[in-house]
Design a protein around this nucleic acid. Structure first.
Lengths: 243, 243
DNA sequence: ACCTGAACACCGTTCAAGT
DNA sequence: ACCTGAACACCGTTCAAGT
C-alpha cells in the first residue's frame, strides 16, 4: 500500500514487511504464481490488484490489457522448455522431437494458456530462443531456409493447438471416458448416410495421445522438408525488408 | 417455433405479435443473428435472453452453458461450407484444397468462433458431412484408412488454428502493417545472439496468407499420405470398439 | 411441472479527482 | 506528474419462489 509513496522520507518500514513497489516483472511474477496455484482463469486484473495490495487501475500503468498480461505469463513459462533435447542423442529429428515434446508438455500443464497463445504470440527472449533452436534443427534436417522459416511456424502452431484442444477435456470431469460429444457422434453414424465415417470408424479414435503426437510431428517434418516454398514468396516477402 | 407451449388453450395471441415460444433452435438462430451483426463476443446469455424477451435463467432449459451455445453456433455455420470443391475439377487434391479453403473462409469471417472451435468441437450433421467428405477425398488421394482418419483431424485442426490466429489481428486496428509484436521482435534480433533467426529473417515473414495456407495444406497432405500410422494404433485403438 | 426474478459473485477498463 | 477510488457497463450461473 505504501511502496509507490517512497518519495521524501524513508517511510516507517517497521511493520508491513511485504508490499514491494509495483513493477511489470513483479506483476507478471504474481500472475504466474496465481496461475500455478489456481489456473489462468483466476489471473484477472482485479484479483492481481488485490494480491498486490492496490486497485486494478494501477496495473494499467504496466500492462496494456489482459491479453498482453497473459502473453507475458506465457513468455515467462517458455523458460521451462528444455531446448537441448538431451535424451535424444545426436539425431536432429530426435532432438527436434524432444524440444517440441517439452514445449507441448509445458503447455499441457496450462492448457488455458495455450488457447491465448494462438492469438497473442509471445515475443520475449524465451520465445526467440525456442524459435532459434527449431530453425537450427530443421536446417540440420535438410530444410532449406524458406522451409525452415515457414516450418517453425507450423510446428509451433500444431503443438499449441494440440495443447489448446485439451483445455476442456482435462478440466471437465463430466464425461470420464466418453471423450467429447464429437467422438460419440462419430460413433452413432450409420453406413447408409455416412459411408466414409463408418469405414474409418475404427481409426477415428484409435491411438494414444502420445502416438498421435508423434505421428503429427512426423507428418509435419516430412511435409516441411519435402514441400517446396513457392519461389515468389522466397524472394519478395510481404514483410521482408533488408535493413 | 412454438411447439413447447401448445398445451391447453391457444393463449391470447392478440397483441404482442413477436415473442415466439423458446426452443433450442430458436435460441441458436438468434445467437447466429447477433453474431453476424455484432460479433461472437456479444452472444452472451444475458444479451440473448434480452433479445428473446425473457430472463437469462430460462435459456438454461435449452442450453447447458455458454460453451455449448457457441458450439451450436459453429455447427450451424458449418452449413455454409462448400463441400463440392466445384471449381477444382476432377483432381482429388484440388477438390480437397477447395473444401478446406471454404472451411477456412467461413471461419475467417468469425475468427472468435474458431478459437472456441478448438476446444468445443461441433458434433452436428454439418460437421459429420464435412468429415465424411474429407475422409473420402483423402482416401481417393491414396491415404490408407488409418492415415485418412488421423489426417482429417490434422487438416481441420490446422485450418481452425489458422483462423483462430487471425482473431485479434483483424479486429485490432492498432498496428496497421506492423503485424504483431512477435514479428517485430524477430526483426530486432542480431546475429551474435540469434544467428539462425538472422539467417532466416527474410523468410520468416515472407509470403502472402494465401501462399502460406496453400503451402500448409500441401505440407499436411504430403505428410499424411507418406507417414505411416503405427501398427499398434491401427489395430487396437483406445476408443475403438466394434458394435 | 415448468419457468424465472432476483441475487451471488464476479469481470475489464476508464477517468475524474486526489496527492 | 503520477497514481487510484469509484464508477460504468457489463458477465455466467444458481435457486428459491412463483404460476
Amino acid at each position: 500500500m505504501n511502496a509507490v509513496s517512497v518519495r521524501k522520507e524513508p517511510i516507517s518500514r517497521r511493520e508491513r514487511p511485504a508490499k514491494p513497489a509495483l513493477s511489470r516483472s513483479g506483476i507478471v511474477a504474481t500472475a504466474v504464481r496465481i496461475m500455478r496455484a489456481e489456473g489462468l482463469e483466476k489471473v484477472t486484473m482485479r484479483r492481481l490488484a488485490q494480491e498486490l495490495d492496490t486497485g486494478p487501475a494501477s496495473l494499467y500503468v504496466y500492462v496494456a490489457n489482459t491479453a498482453e498480461l497473459h502473453a507475458a505469463v506465457l513468455e515467462s513459462l517458455l523458460g521451462e522448455v528444455d531446448l537441448t533435447g538431451r535424451d535424444a542423442g545426436e539425431d536432429w529429428r530426435g532432438q527436434l522431437r524432444a524440444v517440441m515434446a517439452s514445449y507441448i508438455l509445458v503447455l499441457f500443464e496450462h492448457p488455458q494458456l495455450a488457447r491465448s497463445a494462438l492469438v497473442a504470440r509471445p515475443s520475449g527472449e524465451n520465445y526467440l530462443r525456442l524459435v532459434e533452436r527449431i530453425l537450427d534443427l530443421l536446417s540440420r534436417g535438410g530444410a532449406d531456409r524458406a522451409q525452415a522459416a515457414w516450418g517453425v511456424d507450423k510446428l509451433l502452431q500444431d503443438a499449441t493447438a494440440t495443447a489448446a484442444e485439451h483445455a476442456t477435456q482435462q478440466h471437465d470431469p463430466d464425461f470420464p471416458a466418453d471423450w467429447n460429444a464429437s467422438v460419440s457422434a462419430l460413433h452413432r453414424t450409420d453406413e447408409a448416410t455416412h459411408p466414409a465415417i463408418t469405414a474409418h470408424r475404427q481409426h477415428l479414435t484409435s491411438g494414444t495421445p502420445e502416438q498421435r503426437m508423434r505421428w503429427s510431428f512426423d507428418v509435419l517434418v516430412n511435409g516441411i522438408t519435402s514441400t517446396p516454398v513457392p519461389d515468389s514468396a522466397s524472394e519478395s516477402g510481404s514483410g521482408a525488408r533488408a535493413d
